[in-house]
């Protein structure tokens, strides 16, 4: 038995939702990643926007980015969202914020904004991803 990533190009399995989560709070990231894995999704975890952009440059493809805004490093979550919008326009973006009124954010940068701590967002994320598949 070979793992899925040996079966062809990375991210080629279109029925599998592949998620990149960028969040520096370890326990929050772990909880969110585990929740999404329980949905049957494949999740890659990083702790900074810099690390996420580094990974995306390896031609690893994802369907969804879930990102915090404030993270350590040169780039923040909004920089990451802008990069994804320009270089990986097929990806959907969910921004996790401490406070919805924290700062004005360009609404074109994300499909969904959620306020931390995350509660019951699984169904919303499923709808977000299914909407795209149903439209396709």
């Amino acid at each position: 038995m070979l793992p899925a990533f040996f079966s062809g190009s990375v991210g080629a399995v279109k029925d599998l939702t592949r998620v990149l989560i960028a969040e520096d709070e370890f326990l929050l990231r772990l909880d969110a990643a585990d929740s999404m894995r329980r949905l049957g999704w494949e999740v890659v975890e990083v702790s900074s926007a810099d690390e996420a952009m580094e990974l995306l440059r390896y031609r690893v493809t994802f369907d969804l980015l879930v990102t915090d805004i404030d993270m350590p490093g040169q780039a923040d979550g909004l920089d990451l969202a802008r990069y994804v919008r320009s270089a990986h326009s097929e990806m959907k973006i969910v921004i996790m914020s401490e406070d919805r009124a924290d700062r004005p954010i360009d609404p074109h940068l994300f499909e969904l904004m959620v306020v931390k701590p995350l509660w019951n967002v699984g169904e919303t994320l499923i709808k977000l991803m299914e909407a795209d598949r149903n439209a396709g």
Partner: peptide, 14 residues
């Protein structure tokens, strides 16, 4: 190393 970590973790999960 994000690439190495994520792929080793995926391998072990599988």
């Amino acid at each position: 190393d994000a690439l190495q970590r994520s792929m080793i973790a995926k391998y072990l999960r599988e």
